[in-house]
Design a protein around this nucleic acid. Structure first.
Lengths: 196, 196
DNA sequence: CGCGTTTCTTACCATACATCAATGCGTAAC
DNA sequence: GTTACGCATTGATGTATGGTAAGAAACGCG
């Protein structure tokens, strides 16, 4: 069950087999069927989730009941409410499974242990955070100035393999538009004979 | 010139006087008059800037020539294009001074030295990154769902003391709306006798 | 398979915000 | 002091996207 996670760490954090065995001791791995909620908004988030297989999402619900998808997490991605996890605030996100998934639950003790055992892990962790920031800056930039069509095209470019796995209304929510608008955008693109 | 930075590190990273002296050796501090550009888009960003006094901003320019402000950085804030700094990509941001400012230029060697000399600095650095992420998630969430008025109110709540220092058209750019729209939003709020 | 539920599409109209243009105001330059 | 420029405001008009409602298609489940 842990092999995907092991390979991921070896590829990205230069962690040896022995190091991994030390770090991985006591980890929780769960099979989560589609629609399972891993974190309810309002809870304190006590885990960072690593997606070994499947697809998760994090979203907020605004005052009018509308969902806004903050992040998708397919295989080899992390997902969490870092605000809640690190600052022990009640979470504003809900995290659930879009597909049947296999998820590794990482708690604070894991990160402490990993940091203490291997300095490589620290560097890797820093790099991950920088990546998260890069990725969010790109998204903010798009939300500030790009049209619905531009945002959709950027999404396809960035996540070509997710486009088919995620229902359209979720993509619309991620882009900050309504499902109807996305449908119209797609029609327009088809009309200009755009090849996905 | 470095006292603001020193106090900041002592407050936030539990760094002692001696540790600071070690870390701070060789740092560059510059006075940057209003409108000075610290980083041109297209350049590789080789510094993280710490604002000791004054006010900086980072912005992108889109295809139609419009500016989109990504971040403001008043006293005691960091600003940089982290993508460019860490991944040695050409920067997509321009960083310039909104007010006459005093800025500390921190390069890679500073971060390496600081991390090696004091483990506290590492933790502090991690915490800073988490803060950046929190703050960006909040912004994404607003951009996804909130109206111009809601975004403006959130801005005022989050940066009460910046509202007066930043020209309105820049606030509009930060919120992702036109200066005209912001003017109308403010008029509306005044009409509902809103107290800023 | 058949039935219900969810998702996608399409049409019509509503609205928030953008765009364009004109005016006024304050500050800096000369 | 006068001129000039940047910034804020306001009004008229345009456009992208939202809201609602309906039907079609796809999916899930007994």
């Amino acid at each position: 069950m842990l092999t995907a996670f092991k390979q991921y760490l070896q590829r990205n954090a230069q962690i040896s087999d022995q190091q991994f065995d030390l770090i991985a001791e006591g980890l929780t791995v769960k099979e989560v069927p589609k629609k399972t909620v891993l974190l309810f908004s309002g809870e304190i988030c006590s885990h960072v989730f690593f997606v070994s297989k499947g697809l998760l999402r994090a979203y907020t619900v605004d005052g009018t009941g509308k969902e806004h998808i903050i992040q998708f997490a397919p295989e080899d991605w992390w997902i969490s409410d870092r605000d809640s996890f690190y600052c022990h605030q009640p979470s504003i996100f809900t995290i659930d499974a879009i597909e049947d998934s296999i998820v590794i639950y990482l708690d604070h003790s894991f990160f402490e242990k990993a940091a203490a055992l291997t300095p490589e892990f620290n560097n890797f962790n820093l790099k991950s955070l920088h990546n998260a920031i890069r990725y969010m800056q790109r998204r903010i930039n798009l939300l500030l100035g790009a049209t619905a069509e531009e945002r959709y095209l950027d999404f396809i470019r960035l996540y070509p393999n997710l486009t088919l796995r995620i229902p359209q209304w979720m993509i619309a929510s991620y882009l900050g538009i309504t499902p109807e608008s996305l449908s119209r955008v797609r029609k327009e693109l088809a009309h200009k004979n755009f090849k996905p």
